[in-house]
Computed example of a mutant assay.
Amino acid sequence: MITLTESAIQELKRLRSKYEKEGSQPILRLGVKPSGCSGLSYVMNFEPQANPDDHTFDFGELRVAVDPLSMTLIQGLTVDFSEDLLGGGFKFKNPNAVASCGCGTSFATAETAAAVGH
């Protein structure tokens, strides 16, 4: 399961409006990629549709797709959004993360930390 706070949903819907074409509502792709100080970074972008093997979640009018590999690393993730002048933006609370860096978008799980020697 993935959770989006109401403030994250509202900001994502606002951002999605820039990607909408007549008659279409892009979905949010949420996942991870190897990158960042801790080994993995969160990625978010809008795509026309989900892939057949994606896990999908509906938050009212907002649909989120997560690929199977990313899902194993972010199961239970909560995404929040803050408009604070300092430190604002999207925040990720991942129960699988055993380490993260100050940027808040880079993390390691027990498996990835062991693989890179953290």
Rank of each mutant, 00 (worst) to 15 (best):
I2C: 09
T3W: 05
L4T: 08
T5F: 10
E6Y: 05
E6W: 01
E6G: 03
S7W: 05
S7M: 14
A8D: 09
I9P: 01
Q10F: 11
Q10Y: 10
Q10A: 15
L12I: 08
L12D: 07
L12W: 00
K13F: 09
K13W: 00
R14N: 13
L15Q: 12
R16Y: 07
R16M: 05
S17L: 09
K18L: 13
E20N: 08
K21H: 13
E22R: 13
G23M: 06
S24W: 08
S24G: 06
P26N: 06
P26E: 06
I27F: 03
I27C: 11
I27E: 00
L28T: 04
L28V: 10
R29F: 11
R29M: 10
R29P: 01
L30C: 05
L30M: 05
G31I: 00
V32F: 12
V32C: 15
P34K: 15
G36R: 00
C37N: 13
C37F: 12
C37I: 07
S38Q: 11
S38C: 15
G39V: 07
G39Q: 02
S41L: 07
Y42K: 09
V43G: 15
N45L: 06
N45E: 15
F46L: 09
F46V: 04
E47Y: 14
P48Q: 12
Q49A: 13
A50K: 15
A50V: 04
A50N: 11
N51P: 04
D53H: 13
D53Q: 13
D53G: 09
D54F: 03
H55A: 10
T56F: 12
T56M: 15
F57P: 02
G60R: 07
G60Y: 09
E61I: 00
L62V: 10
L62I: 10
R63Q: 11
A65E: 01
V66G: 14
D67T: 08
D67P: 01
P68N: 12
P68R: 09
L69H: 10
S70K: 07
M71W: 02
T72I: 06
L73K: 11
L73D: 06
Q75N: 14
L77I: 10
T78D: 08
F81E: 00
S82E: 09
E83S: 14
D84V: 03
D84E: 15
D84A: 15
D84H: 08
L86C: 12
L86I: 15
G88I: 07
G88Q: 03
G89N: 10
K91C: 06
K91Y: 01
F92K: 01
K93C: 06
P95N: 09
N96G: 01
N96P: 04
N96M: 12
N96L: 11
A97S: 10
V98I: 15
S100F: 05
S100W: 01
C101W: 00
C101D: 05
C101I: 00
G102W: 05
G102R: 05
C103Y: 05
C103R: 01
G104I: 07
G104W: 01
T105D: 04
S106T: 07
F107M: 06
A108S: 10
A108M: 03
A108L: 00
T109P: 02
T109S: 12
A110E: 10
A110L: 04
T112D: 08
T112I: 07
A113D: 11
A113K: 03
A113L: 06
A115D: 12
V116D: 13
V116S: 14
G117A: 07
G117P: 02
H118Y: 14
H118L: 15
